[in-house]
Nucleic acid binder design. Structure first.
Lengths: 248, 248
DNA sequence: TTGCAGTTTTAGGTATGCCTAAACCATACT
DNA sequence: AGTATGGTTTAGGCATACCTAAAACTGCAA
């Protein structure tokens, strides 16, 4: 947990933010969150599950609303205002997930879709009261940091599991909540956030992790290892680094 | 609490039920719940805050979906399937309100709008888990009965406060959750559901109620008295009945 | 430098759900 | 019975947000 992203200016949540606009903002933010890549229209389209032309139109609209910067044929970037909208949505989403798991008996692999719908329906008041009731959690059940009321957020510096070199000791920090398979595998193996494991093998993104240095391993397909983020506890120089993240 | 409305056939919640369809069904049900009047298009339009033509179109659509019976120029009636959709929405709404009041510190005059939005966003699973967490409440904070998982519901036989004769002793049973002023007045006067009060005066729908037979009264405008339902504990024959419900 | 491949945008169209204005029916009253 | 009044429906439109097909641009490569 090192840098602390801070966002000023409270409720810049424009009333003209429809459900779609909220989703676009959140998705643009999510695509650029880790790698600071500018976002292409087609990446957005793929992630949102809509056609490319739809993205063009929606992005134009969001530019008019002052939520994104976008010149024709150029990549898409959130404005400060857009970033705040996105963070507000992230806050809602993660607080809702925390609540669903803690108080409604949901499994951590079941909450994503429910939160995805609820986040567009709750009021600012609701979010603040929920936050208070939960004791102002800083992290959701998947290990993702929760933006505070001022939208500032701890930004842990973690590594994709699929990019960690063999023979490292790592601590599981975050799991992508939108990949239920990853969540299910971990739940089955009783590996929880904060658990320390060893990367015993790693090839073309597939990763084998074991609970102890010599223990039996759990094989994780690239797709799953790509959904997990870890902090490196000990990096054994001997192990060759995995070939990196193949598909973008 | 006498008759018990029972509705078979669980989750007849058609997937083609959009937010609008859900609102229409709930509103049609609500308008016909107490008085078993068939619902006119314009009453629906007024309640929903949309134009008359919009209602015609939507009702046609709902007839195609099998949710209402409707011949041109005739009143509108829910089919069994429509009634079940409506009851499912009522269940959601009242459970959400109960939760907001009990666990999120909302006042009973603040929950309506929030529940109104949330009820369209929650899943069947969510509703059932919430119901379980709350201990399967049979009544919401406003005294309205909550349909069970099978959509059956106690149907208390109560009277509009504005129609109760002077000098009756009554118990407050229900307050319309969509009339925040009524809720606020009662909260200010610390009159709660189940409280017994005396109707000491009543003219053209305005009603004065007092905590004791001789105590000082609280004057309730017709509009507010119309939003409260009571059960009559003692009806003093001497008092003249109010002139009844004027509008509608 | 020209051309091609891939991305992005324009053009034109669908579905939902709402609107106003105008036509229509049905009933109640003279 | 004839007609006025009001509720209801048709007709024609608007906004959102999506689609496919076709045109346009960018930038890399021969």
């Amino acid at each position: 947990m090192t840098p602390r992203t801070s966002a000023q200016g409270q409720s810049t949540r424009t009333d003209s933010a429809t459900t779609s606009v909220e989703d676009y903002a959140k998705t643009i933010y999510g695509l650029a969150e880790w790698d600071d890549t500018a976002v292409s229209a087609s990446a957005l389209a793929k992630t949102l599950g809509v056609s490319n032309p739809s993205v063009t139109l929606m992005v134009r609209k969001m530019a008019d609303l002052g939520l994104v910067d976008h010149q024709p044929y150029a990549p898409i970037r959130l404005t400060e205002q857009g970033r705040q909208l996105a963070l507000a949505m992230v806050r809602r989403h993660r607080l809702l997930e925390t609540w669903l798991v803690r108080e409604l008996g949901y499994g951590w692999d079941e909450v994503h879709d429910e939160a995805e719908r609820l986040e567009h329906a709750v009021s600012e008041t609701f979010v603040d009261r929920l936050d208070a009731r939960l004791g102002h959690p800083r992290v959701d059940p998947h290990g993702d940091p929760i933006p505070g009321p001022d939208l500032s957020m701890d930004h842990p510096d973690t590594e994709l599991l699929c990019r960690v070199p063999t023979s490292s000791a790592v601590r599981l920090e975050q799991v992508d909540d939108s990949v239920p398979d990853a969540l299910r595998v971990l739940a089955e193996q009783q590996v929880e956030i904060g658990a320390q494991v060893h990367v015993t093998a790693s090839e073309s993104g597939d990763v084998v992790v074991a609970r102890t240095d010599a223990g039996e391993g759990i094989r994780l397909a690239h797709e799953l290892a790509h959904a997990m983020r870890v902090s490196v506890v000990r990096s054994d120089g001997s192990g060759a680094s995995g070939p990196g993240d193949l598909e973008n």
